Amino acid sequence: MKLDNVAKILQEKNNIEILTHHYPDGDTLGSAYGLCKALQDIGKNARVILSGKAATKFDYLKNGVKENSFTPDFIMSVDVAAPQLLGDNEESYSNKIQLCIDHHGSNSLGVEDSYIDATAASTCEIIFDLINLMNVKVTKEIANCLYTGVSTDTGCFMYTNTTAKTHMIAAKLIECGADFAVINRAMFETKTKQKLALERMVYDTLDYYYDGKLAIIYTTLAMQDKLNLGDDQMEGLASIPRQIDGVKMGITIREKQDNVFKISVRTNGDTDACEFCKKFGGGGHKAASGCAINGTLESVKQQLIDAAKEILQ
């Protein structure tokens, strides 16, 4: 469907719930809260339904969101590429979503009314265009939300998904008052002492395979418990192995619960992270994708090493 049709649908609805994906990042949160504020600004009842706890560094995204009580009659999702990514909300919501907005070409949510733009570097880019089509003013608070998603999903404009349009939208958001310097420092430079200690431990797990073309790191629940790190502070490690010279595929294995591991894959050059993750029921983008695998740490790691062989050898 066309984006102007999405705008018309939302202009006709009044009681709207906006779903995010689990382990919420800057793009799903920025999209949800930015759109929620825009809808509230034109008199709609709207609220964001999180899946899992968001990191405290994202608390500012809620600024300006009104807490209102209503019975929803329209449910939509932003940046949710598959039913399982709804996390704890999957059972309650997966068959009730009436509109899906996303930028993952691998989207398998199966919603009839969907707007998927795989050329967009972030879902927040789409939301920016949508809000303008709805003739809603992009306030400073909305700009902060959307800039957060644009910046985080492009690695502060360093990833290959960044386009000329990405930069133009970022510039317009800055013109609208986005606190870009504050946001970029919070997202990319500020770390707690516990997070630095975790990174030190993670470097000790680093292993190379296939002449250094594959690098793998991991975190365990024991590491998390030792440092007293909450689940919301465990993100942001996936870029570490990809940064190493000569690495074509960097894999981060994160233990979520006993025998359940979240896999983040980041690639350089022509190596396709999305196709790799599809082998394990996941997906995402060519340079950044993910999946989940059950088993012991050793068995999960070996499965990933074996699956990478045909790509990297």
Rank of each mutant, 00 (worst) to 15 (best):
L3G: 07
N5R: 15
Q11Y: 10
I16M: 02
D27C: 05
D27T: 06
Y33D: 02
Y33N: 02
G34I: 04
K37A: 01
L39G: 02
K44G: 05
R47A: 10
V48T: 06
A54D: 01
K57L: 13
D59P: 00
Y60N: 05
V65Q: 03
I75L: 10
S77H: 04
A81P: 02
Q84T: 09
Q84Y: 14
D88Q: 13
E90A: 14
N95M: 10
K96T: 03
G105Q: 08
S106F: 09
E112M: 02
A120S: 15
A120W: 07
C124Q: 09
F128I: 05
K137H: 15
K140L: 14
E141M: 01
N144Y: 01
V150D: 00
A164D: 12
T166K: 03
L173Q: 03
L173E: 01
D179E: 15
F180Y: 14
N184R: 11
A186I: 06
T190H: 12
T192I: 08
T192A: 09
K195R: 15
M201K: 13
D207G: 09
Y210W: 11
M223R: 06
D225L: 06
K226T: 13
G230P: 08
D232E: 15
Q233K: 14
E235W: 06
G236N: 09
A238S: 15
S239P: 00
R242L: 12
M249T: 04
I251E: 07
K262D: 13
V265P: 00
R266S: 03
N268F: 04
G269L: 04
A273W: 03
C274I: 01
C277G: 05
A287I: 13
G295I: 11
S299I: 08
Q302V: 01
K309R: 15
L312N: 12
